[in-house]
Design a protein around this nucleic acid. Sequence first.
DNA 1: GTGGTAACTTACCCGCAAGTCATATACCTG
DNA 2: CAGGTATATGACTTGCGGGTAAGTTACCAC
Lengths: 209, 209
Amino acid sequence: MAARPNAGTKGVPRAERERQILDVASVAFGTHGFAGTNVADVARAAGISKPLVYAYFGSKEGLYAACLDRAGELLGDEIERVARGDVVGLERGVRTLEGMFAVLEDQRHVWRLLHDRSAPTSPEVASVVAAHTERIHALAHEGVSELLALAGVQDALDVSAMTATWLGIVDSLMDWWVAHPEQSAADMVERVTRLVAALFTDAAAGTPR
Amino acid sequence: MAARPNAGTKGVPRAERERQILDVASVAFGTHGFAGTNVADVARAAGISKPLVYAYFGSKEGLYAACLDRAGELLGDEIERVARGDVVGLERGVRTLEGMFAVLEDQRHVWRLLHDRSAPTSPEVASVVAAHTERIHALAHEGVSELLALAGVQDALDVSAMTATWLGIVDSLMDWWVAHPEQSAADMVERVTRLVAALFTDAAAGTPR
DNA sequence: GTGGTAACTTACCCGCAAGTCATATACCTG
DNA sequence: CAGGTATATGACTTGCGGGTAAGTTACCAC
């Protein structure tokens, strides 16, 4: 029946379809946020119909949680891998960024999933968010603590604020990367290395007060 | 008539009402984003009814644009004030933050309005967003250029990426401040000054590669 | 073949929030 | 007081988008 283009084709196996949908949905959620994304658009972009999305993920929140879960694990694992190495201080920061760039080269928007302000507050989703953000935050806190300890800063609130700032730096670099698709991961690593070197060796010239 | 609590009271003059509504709406938009905010809630929180909001601002987008306009002008003016001073380099960054903290002490969420990913893309709103973000971005770019020039970095993309990072730093500090309401503006300035001093004098110990 | 199941669709329901209409009270002015 | 205007509201319409029901096609096992 011509009216139903793809109806009844045996089609793609479940696992693969789920991956496809998650890919598309991650872009959408990462770009427009949870509240700004609609499921019908995701389905259309994935080349399937809306009910199929629901068949696989149950609800919009379920879909979001699944995206988040995949993203959180990917990022968390990579950050942890670097953390378990033996680098410390600024070097650890740069190496972590290097890992992020490598892992996210083909899915740059994914980082944003973790920082969605319009995410639903339902306990089901919140717990998934919390699990991953807490893990990443803990690793960031660890790295920042080390760095600041080297510089003689111990105050807990100082470390807390600096951790937030570090995450913000990652965030903004990812955003910039999204806006500059022609830049490769390697380009980004070079750029960051260059900037860090410039700022932390020469720029002390302008140290305030 | 008891059924209409406030109906028909001559009520508050227009200008003052508009200010009240903008105050409430800015909190809502800044907290939940554009897509996550609903007008009825804003009206209720402002102690008035929904049609009045529409009478004053025409639409949800109009309300959002008005919030943005006020915020953008407030922030832009303050940033520009610091920029027109004679400080450069890191000092200028710290002074700019000082200005932000002072101006936003009682409305910390406002900064987020400028960075709302769920903001509508209609030309009407987009132009207002663009006007303010471009102004602020240009000022940030100017400051970052100066700073990097002192450190010997000239590359346009490096400056661009660093500008984005700087804005991300401001962003994350504002977020942290929102999460720590007991911290005064003065506390924040001290904290930032302390961290900058620590990072840019001692931390070169950990300079990478 | 026939029955079972997995992959998929069209067509619908329905609630919520954006936006509107008709109306009411208060104040001012002549 | 009559009439105009500014401030306000309760009750409504409407559309968008989350979610569902029921059916269709293909493959597989026997």
